[in-house]
Design a protein around this nucleic acid. Structure first.
Length: 567
DNA sequence: GCCGTTTTCGGCCCGACTGTTTTCAGTCG
């Protein structure tokens, strides 16, 4: 079983953690961390790249040494460097780094002085009053540790984007209404449309920061104020979501927005470019020596470092800076580009069809594919539904309703359509809805076989993941993407907030392979068409332009593409 | 550990807040 990209990233992160506790060169540590992030976001598996004989040192931040270690991990599942480090320090010690307030220095102190390498040992030592005696520790640190250890909540719980929006948008509106506040925006990974966010980064411009800080900490849903200074504060909401607020003067808005949107790796890379131009970037502006040359708007910051504007969704240091410098940044698909939705399934068709039609029209859509669930419908029911769609189409109000049917892909790759005539439908939407945990080879074979069906149109929610609930299937997604392209079928990017499936890294693979993506809401209620914005965010993170997305086409073009899927 | 129109050495992004300290290290983002 060859190591996956996330296995490789885990090894590199562990090496970085251990080196940090050993107080090794900080830049060496960063090289491991950067490599971990790079590998995670690669889309294609490093193992396959190696198998194809590709040169990993061409990846940014990967040199001879790291390329060798990647090969070693792919082949053996581990690498000698990690094993050596584990001889110097207990492997469990990295779990201590996850405890808030503990960094490498304090962890090292705990280990050297008290031989502590697990949270349990730490808890016992705190109870014995031993920890407060250590240099760099005191009563407050001890109390904070006790609280953190008692919480037992995993520190790496992330919030789906839609959940973060539910809490973040009202808070943003609350801040915007404070007298003296000019701008109030949510930056960070939220603005980059990451599928989940670890915390919310709010940015406010105001003359009087003290008032804003006070009102922020008084916000009704705040459960705990973790820190509060003149221009920066951190709180935790009752649901556990951490929110950071930063207040800057209006003239620094663009620089601060850019800075707090990140990602960290993107910022570091941009600063390096700025440095080459003898410029310094921080959250207050762009500086040449002491003189401020930009900062009021994000555009001014880009202009100062002679780069074109880079959309927030691209700012991950995954090649966007090279593309920007080469003038090859993609024009990303926008919400207005979407002319339809190829997968909506009203729960009660007769009752809700009109609501859907109206909601779609308001979004200036031209078509909706109404998806009927094959497995839960009796033939009579089905005919009734199809008739209802026909009637709605006859009424003709600038919106075309297409007929789609959802079929399960059986474990052997056959389409489980019961006795339904697939020819009655414009679109046949296949999905894996069972046996999610098949081994990679079997799961891949299953899907490839389904794609071979002469009526197959759309592969829905391809990885089957549910954020925080179900891991993606072990599927060779790049291979499925290639098969879909050859077969002229579409892959869905399902916009349901807990799915966001296809994930961004695979969108990018689809773009490179030339496969078409359908950004669908998967809505069961008309209001859920709103979810398209989350799917769109994921698509943009995957560098998709309008031409990569099938539902940006006109009805006529779509019909032609649908015809081409039929074998 | 990586990288190069400052190129094989010597750099590598930058600032706020807290707590433990009497001027700053550690952590965090």
């Amino acid at each position: 079983m060859p190591a996956s990209n996330s296995d490789i990233a885990k090894v590199f992160d562990e090496i970085a953690d251990l080196l940090e506790i050993l107080d090794e060169n900080a830049f060496r540590i960063r090289a491991y961390r950067n490599a971990a992030r790079l590998i995670e976001g690669l889309g294609v598996s490093a193992g396959q790249m190696l198998a194809k004989g590709e040169d990993l040192t061409e990846l940014p931040g990967i040199g001879k040494d790291l390329a060798g270690k990647i090969r070693e991990i792919v082949e053996t599942g581990t690498c000698a460097a990690r094993e050596e480090l584990r001889k110097k320090l207990p492997a469990t010690i990295t779990t201590l780094l996850k405890i808030p307030g503990l960094g490498p220095k304090r962890v090292q102190t705990l280990y050297r002085r008290l031989d502590i390498s697990t949270p349990e040992q730490l808890y016992a030592a705190v109870k014995d009053g031993k920890v407060r005696e250590l240099p760099g520790f005191g009563e407050k640190t001890e109390a904070a540790l006790l609280q953190a250890l008692g919480r037992r909540a995993p520190a790496d719980a992330r919030f789906p984007l839609a959940v973060a929006a539910q809490y973040g948008e009202p808070l943003r509106a609350y801040l915007a209404k404070i007298p003296g506040v000019n701008d109030a925006v949510i930056a960070g990974s939220y603005r980059r449309s990451r599928e989940t966010v670890g915390d919310l980064d709010l940015l406010v411009t105001a003359k009087d920061s003290a008032t804003v800080m006070d009102r922020f900490c008084e916000y009704p849903h705040v459960a705990d104020v973790k820190s509060k200074g003149d221009t920066r504060a951190t709180v935790v909401l009752a649901n556990g979501l951490q929110v950071d607020l930063r207040v800057v003067p209006r003239t620094s808005f663009g620089a601060a927005l850019y800075y707090f949107t990140g990602s960290k790796n993107h910022n570091v890379a941009v600063r390096r470019i700025a440095q080459q131009r003898k410029l310094k970037i921080n959250e207050y502006g762009v500086f040449r020596g002491k003189r401020r040359v930009a900062g009021e708007t994000e555009q001014s910051v880009f202009k100062a470092v002679r780069l074109p504007f880079i959309a927030p969704e691209l700012r991950e240091n995954r090649g966007e800076l090279e593309a920007a410098q080469a003038g090859t940044l993609p024009t990303l698909v926008a919400l207005d580009d979407l002319r339809g939705d190829l997968n909506v399934s009203p729960r009660d068709l007769e009752a809700e069809l009109e609501t859907f039609v109206e909601a779609a029209r308001q979004r200036t859509m031209r078509y909706l594919a109404i998806t009927l669930p094959a497995r839960h419908m009796k033939p009579a029911q089905l005919q009734q539904s199809l008739a209802a769609i026909d009637r709605a189409n006859e009424a003709r109000r600038g919106l075309v309703l297409l007929k789609a049917v959802a079929v399960d892909i059986a474990e052997n790759g056959e389409l489980d359509a019961g006795n339904i005539a697939l020819d009655d439908f414009d679109i046949v939407t296949g999905a894996v809805n069972s046996a999610f945990d098949l081994p990679r080879a079997k799961q891949t074979r299953r899907v490839l076989r389904a794609l071979e069906h002469p009526r197959f149109t759309l592969f829905a929610h391809p990885t089957g993941r549910l954020l925080n609930r179900r891991e993606p299937c072990d599927l060779d997604v790049p291979r499925v993407i290639r098969a879909a392209r050859e077969r002229k079928c579409f892959l869905e990017l399902n916009s349901q907030p807990e799915r966001l499936d296809l994930p961004d890294v695979y969108c990018r693979v689809a773009r490179e392979e030339g496969a078409l993506i359908a950004i669908n809401s998967g809505a069961q209620r008309a209001a859920e068409l709103e979810h398209l914005r989350y799917g769109l965010g994921q698509a943009r993170r995957g560098w998709l332009g309008a031409k990569n997305v099938v539902n940006t086409r006109t009805v006529a073009d779509l019909r032609a593409l649908l015809q081409a899927t039929r074998l």
